[in-house]
Design a protein around this nucleic acid. Sequence first.
DNA 1: AACACGACCTGGTAGC
DNA 2: TGCTACCAGGTCGTGT
Length: 264
Amino acid sequence: MPELPEVEAVCRKLRDAVTGARIVEARVLRCGTVRVAEQASGRTLQAVERRGKHILLRLSGGVTIHTHLRMSGNLYVIPDHRLHSVYARVVFELLGGQGLVLEDKRVLARMDALSDEEINSRLDRELGPEPLSESFTPEQFVARARSSRQPAKLFLMDQGNVAGLGNIYAAESLFRARIDPRKAMARVSPAKLRGLHGIIVSVLSDAVESAVAAYAGPGAFHSEESFPVAVYDREGEPCMTCRRRIVRIPQGGRSTYFCPGCQR
DNA sequence: AACACGACCTGGTAGC
DNA sequence: TGCTACCAGGTCGTGT
């Protein structure tokens, strides 16, 4: 489900709903970390932050609940903490009776309790710049890309290069930038790389707006965000630009979609 | 060091 | 209708 835009939508919604809320008790229902239950109960939710695809719930006393939704996780507030779905992994009972629920059908999502310093330094070490912040500059991006022999798609998926891009938005960005996903980054022209930098920013900005809109109602995610995909999951369909058929190839164990006519 | 691949898990769905 | 096979918006560990 979530790449950066969807995670951002989750965070914005949580921010409104739980900032300042007191956690009465945290209950781990399925394969989670006991530390979350031990550390969260009795604390106040002070802030909701996002770093790449990671969600950070800042609690009182210097404790952070660190969550990664992976493929199928979701994190949202329900009116009654007792009325969670069968897929709930962790339920935070909030003062007043609401519930903050980590839900995941595939049990791939991760949640842990750490000190603020511990998680901050870990993420700073592992993640590249935030693509929607000042730290993501064309100079930095182009320099890093020019020194990488990774195929373009894998470079973009690598969280150490840019934090938050996943399979869909990496493919869409490369389509708009007209770059072959198999091409080594170091062999892409600097002009195209500068273009790609700007395209990543605009793709993600648009996708955040779509995700926020799609996620606006009560409860969990709507079916799909309305971000207009040009290539993702469109194998065999004609390219909207050149009419050649979009192809799907395996890359890094995942599906990559691209237009062999436009992307070179 | 860089890459490929399976593992982690379960659910949805296309195809027979 | 029911079964099967395959795919899934992510990451990590292992082996080459």
